[in-house]
Computed example of a mutant assay.
Amino acid sequence: MLPPLKALPVFEAVARLNSFSRAATELNVSQSAISHQIRVLEDYLGESLFQRQGRYLALTQEGKNYLDVVSSSLSHIARASNQIRGEEDTKIRIAVYSSFAVCWLMPRLSDLQHKHPNLDITITMTHGSPELSDKTADCFITTDTEKRGFEYQLLYKETLFPVCSHAFYEQIKNTLNVTSDELSKRLKDEPELLENFPLITSNGIYNEYTEDWRSWFLERGIPLSNNIKFHKFSHLILAYEAAKYSLGIALVNDYMFSDKDTHSALVRLPSHRIYTNDHFFFSYKTSRRNETAIKALKQWILNEASSLNTLA
C-alpha cells in the first residue's frame, strides 16, 4: 500500500532544507500545512522522521533511510515526466575529490563547455570518498566500488612519482655537480640520492606522514633514512603547492602533473614510480545510465582520462 503521496515532496523539502518554514516558502504553502503533512506521514509509517528540540531539527535514522529512497524516487518521476514532455534535463551534479577537481577537472572545463554548451554542471568537492546517493550528486569520481545499483567506469590506476620546481631541479644538479643527463642516470641507479634533499610528504593517501616516501624507497629495496628532512602537509594539493614553491621534492600523481604540459611549474625527476591501491572510477546509478546529461559527461570524462594511464 502506498503512503500518502502528497506528503512525500513535503518530507523531501523539509529534510533537504532542514526547516519547516523554508519548506513552506519553497512549496508556497503555510507552515501549518507542512507540519500537518509530516504528521500524516509519520502517523502512517508509525515512526518519527525528525527530531525536534526547540529550533533544532534533525532527521532520525529512520528519516535518513527514508529520505534516500524518497528523494531518488521523486527524482526518477520528475525526469521521466520531463522526458515524456520533451524537456531534456541538462542539469547535472558531480561529486569529485578536491585534488582531482582542482588539478584535473578545472583546467578542462572550458573544453567541456565548448563541446557541450547546454550542459549545466554543478561540481562538489569532497575530501574523502563521496556518499554515492542521489541526494549527494548525480554522478561521482570515486575509489569506492561497493555500492550496489551503481555502474563504475575505470578512469585511472593511481601512481606516484617525484617532482620538484624548476629552481629546485637546478639546485639538485648544482649540489650533485651533474648535468641533466648525468642526473637522470644517477637517479635511476641511486634513488637514495634524494635523501640528501628536503622531501615533502602528505598523509592523504597512506593516512600517515612519510609512508608515501617509505613505499617509494622500498620499491627499490631501500629503507627510509632517519636523517631525511620532511615537510609535512595534510593534503596532496598542499604538497603539490609546496613543491611548486621550492620547499623540496614531492610525490604526486598523473592527474596533478602531465608530461605533455610544457607550462608546468614542476619538473618530473627521472626516477621510478609506485602504484597506490587506489583506482579512480566515474560512477552513476545503473537506473540512470541512459540519461542524456550523464551519458554526455561520462563520454567526455572517459575521453579526457584516456591519456592518464598511458603515462605510466
Results as ranks from 00 to 15, higher is better:
M1A: 14
L5C: 10
L8F: 01
L8W: 02
P9D: 03
V10Y: 03
V10N: 02
A13T: 06
L17W: 11
L17S: 01
A24E: 06
T25P: 03
T25C: 01
T25L: 05
S30I: 00
S32F: 13
S32C: 11
S32T: 13
I34G: 00
Q37N: 15
Q37C: 12
L41T: 15
Y56W: 02
L57T: 05
K64M: 12
Y66R: 06
Y66T: 10
L67T: 07
L67V: 04
D68W: 14
V70N: 05
S72A: 13
S73V: 01
S73W: 11
S73C: 10
L74H: 08
L74A: 02
S75W: 10
S75G: 13
H76L: 15
R79I: 14
R79W: 09
Q83L: 09
Q83M: 15
E88K: 08
D89N: 07
R93E: 04
R93F: 02
S98D: 12
F100N: 01
V102P: 04
C103N: 15
W104I: 01
M106L: 10
D111A: 15
L112E: 00
Q113P: 02
P117A: 05
P117L: 09
N118W: 08
T124H: 10
M125D: 07
T126D: 04
S129H: 10
S129F: 15
S133C: 12
D134R: 06
K135P: 09
K135I: 11
D138F: 07
I141S: 10
T143Y: 00
T145N: 10
G149W: 00
E151P: 06
Y152C: 05
Q153D: 14
Y156K: 11
K157R: 15
T159D: 14
L160P: 03
C164W: 05
H166I: 12
A167E: 12
Q171R: 10
K173P: 01
S184C: 05
K185Y: 06
P191G: 06
P191S: 01
E192V: 08
L193G: 09
I200C: 04
I205E: 09
Y206A: 05
Y206K: 00
N207F: 12
Y209Q: 03
S215K: 14
R220P: 09
P223V: 08
S225I: 10
N227Y: 02
I228L: 06
I237C: 07
L238W: 11
A239L: 08
A242S: 08
K244M: 13
L247Q: 11
A250D: 09
V252F: 04
F257A: 14
S258M: 02
D259H: 09
K260T: 12
D261A: 11
T262V: 12
L269V: 02
P270L: 01
I274T: 00
N277R: 11
D278E: 14
H279R: 00
F280S: 06
K285E: 14
S287K: 12
R288A: 03
R288M: 11
R289T: 07
N290M: 12
K295V: 13
K295F: 13
K295S: 15
A296P: 03
K298I: 04
K298H: 13
W300R: 00
W300G: 02
E304F: 14
E304M: 06
E304W: 14
A305Y: 00
A305N: 00
N309H: 04
T310S: 07
T310I: 13
L311S: 06
